[in-house]
Design a protein around this nucleic acid. Structure first.
Length: 421
RNA sequence: GUGGGUGUAGCUCAAUCGGUAGAGCACCAGGUUGUGGUCCUGGGUGUCGUGGGUUCGACUCCCAUCAUCCACCCCA
């Protein structure tokens, strides 16, 4: 029988790794709630047009990485390559701006990009996004960055570097773009092939090139920060001042740019050397996109958001994945059918009281049962055989200490709660 | 898309110069133990990724292909 494998770049998430993911999601859920974010779940598939307009034709994502197909009605659909555009579509479609002045949403799910597979990079991967609509003030920018700082602190991911920049908007951005082209054009011969193309299609991305010769040229390029008008400069200064007041460490990175076209003004990126991510050291990135809602046909609405790379973040979280799973409180080893029934009933009661209980349902020897209790890391074990059934008493064994505690089976819960406390 | 590494038991990996494969882990049983986890003994499975080529003979050499990992590019 020929077996089938998963699609290249699309992987199964299995235990114990899944426990680490669950922990990340749990921490996010609680933290985001404290900051006023509500969960939303948009579809995985959208009209292709949304990403072309939202993410931008100049981006590599739209250019060559989308999973685009025609459905049976001959509509062009695309598996979302990121979450922000779909969430913006939902925000507009449900007239959120008319319902509330400020909307804070978060979402989690798979996104798809057809690209080369590498460490922390897959064709189906997961992002956790937060988006805040309706506020253009710099204190929100700082709040968002501070929330992420709190998140990674809670996850014990370190060291973290927070890079912040302002890529300008409107006329400021246009003037900088012209100045950058004016500077780069005489050096065009020294740029790599990609950058020669970028010079025409998306000059700001040249700033982000990793090729040494390009970096050398970029080192002398004008800084976007020198082209910000008074309003943008003031905004960026306020973001920094607020971050400082919140005690969030950050570095201004004038050459930090984002790969998606929609960003305006404040952009940021968290990187880490943890997890051996190599060149894929960015674990979360985001920024303002004050023009996108309007460009997608909604009312002009300022917005800011970020996308957390789940796989990369999980790789950076310390400790073995298994340590994130809830520990087994009690393992019940049973000998014989009658004992198994009693064990099943006892376990049911204990589980309803919140204890993690594992019962050996197979007919195997005691030795194998205790071996399994040991492997599962059970805190306590209880052997149930004919004598225990007859007397209604047993011995709770502390697996680590190898000490045994007599227990009356009818009083099992209280004894266990005392021992596990 | 470009460059490099690796594909052998369920998992992690060995196999000399080319002579049709082995260990650990895991699993079960037995010994010891209090019917009882760490110690000891025993128990078995491989289209050697796939297809072709060279050879008397290929896990080993060659070509192709697929998968996987790493770097680059790009991004989260």
């Amino acid at each position: 029988m020929e077996t089938t494998s998963s699609v290249r770049g699309m992987n199964d998430l299995l235990p114990p790794e899944s426990a680490k993911w669950a922990h990340l999601e749990r921490v996010c859920r609680e933290l985001f709630a404290r900051f006023g974010y509500d969960e939303v779940r948009p579809p995985v598939v959208e009209h292709t047009e949304l990403f072309v307009r939202g993410v931008g034709e100049g981006s590599d994502i739209v250019h060559k990485e989308m999973y685009t197909f025609r459905d049976r009605s001959d509509r062009s659909l695309t598996l979302r390559p990121e979450l922000t555009a779909g969430l913006a579509r939902a925000y507009i479609e449900h007239s959120m701006s008319a319902k509330e002045a400020v909307t804070r949403w978060w979402s989690l799910g798979p996104v798809f990009r057809y690209e080369a597979i590498n460490t922390g990079r897959y064709r189906q991967f997961y992002q956790i996004d937060c988006e805040a609509y309706g506020v253009g003030e710099p204190t929100l920018d700082a709040e968002v960055i501070a929330m992420l700082h709190a998140l990674y602190t809670a996850l014990r991911v370190e060291p973290i570097t927070i890079l912040v920049n302002n890529v300008g908007r409107g006329e400021d951005r246009g003037r900088y773009r012209e100045a950058l082209i004016a500077y780069l054009t005489p050096h065009a011969d020294g740029l790599c092939g990609d950058c020669k193309r970028r010079l025409v299609t998306n000059p700001l991305r040249v700033l982000d090139c990793k090729v040494e010769t390009c970096k050398a040229i970029v080192a002398g390029a004008p800084s976007v920060l020198d082209f910000l008008g008074p309003a943008a400069s003031e905004h960026f200064a306020a973001v920094q001042a607020t971050l400082t007041e919140l005690g969030v460490p950050f570095t201004v990175a004038p050459r930090l740019v984002r790969g998606l076209d929609y960003y305006t003004g404040t952009v940021f990126e968290f990187t880490t050397t943890a997890g051996n991510l190599g060149s894929q050291s960015t674990i979360v990135a985001g920024g303002r996109y004050d023009d996108m809602i309007g460009e997608l046909g909604g009312p002009a609405t300022p917005a800011i958001g970020f996308g957390i790379g789940v796989e990369r973040t999980v790789l950076c979280m310390p400790g073995d994945a298994a340590t994130y799973a809830p520990p087994v409180g009690l393992f019940i080893a049973a000998h014989g059918a009658a004992a198994r029934r009693r064990a099943t009933a006892l376990a049911h009661t204990l589980r309803q009281a919140g204890i993690v209980v594992e019962v050996e349902h197979r007919e195997v020897g005691m030795k194998a049962q205790f071996r399994r209790a040991d492997k599962l890391g059970a805190r306590l074990s209880l052997a149930l055989g004919e004598s225990e059934l007859a007397s209604g008493e047993g011995k709770l064994k502390d697996m680590a200490a190898r000490a045994e505690h007599p227990v009356v089976l009818s009083d099992l819960l209280a004894t266990i709660q005392r021992l596990l406390a």
